Computed example of a mutant assay.
Amino acid sequence: MEERIVVLETKLMAAEDLLDELNRTVWRQQQELDLLRQHLHQLAQQVKTLQPGDPLRPEDEIPPHW
Rank of each mutant, 00 (worst) to 15 (best):
Q51P: 04
L36W: 03
D60G: 04
L56W: 00
P52D: 09
M13G: 13
V47A: 10
H41F: 08
V6N: 13
Q30I: 02
K11A: 12
T10M: 14
L19P: 03
H41I: 09
L36T: 03
D17W: 15
L43P: 01
R24S: 13
L19K: 12
E16M: 12
E59G: 00
W66Q: 01
L43Y: 06
Q46L: 05
V26Y: 01
K48L: 12
Q30K: 08
D60N: 04
V26W: 00
G53W: 12
L12Q: 10
K11S: 10
L12H: 08
W27V: 14
T25C: 02
R24A: 15
P58G: 01
Q31F: 07
L33I: 03
Q46Y: 01
P52I: 06
T10A: 15
Q46V: 06
L8R: 04
D54V: 05
D17E: 15
D60L: 07
L43R: 06
K11W: 10
H65M: 01
V7P: 00
E61G: 00
T10K: 12
H65W: 03
V47D: 08
V7S: 09
D20S: 15
P58T: 01
L18C: 14
L50M: 14
L35D: 11
Q38W: 02
T10P: 06
L8G: 03
I62H: 01
P64M: 03
Q29S: 02
Q51E: 11
E61T: 04
Q38E: 06
L33K: 07
A44H: 12
L18T: 15
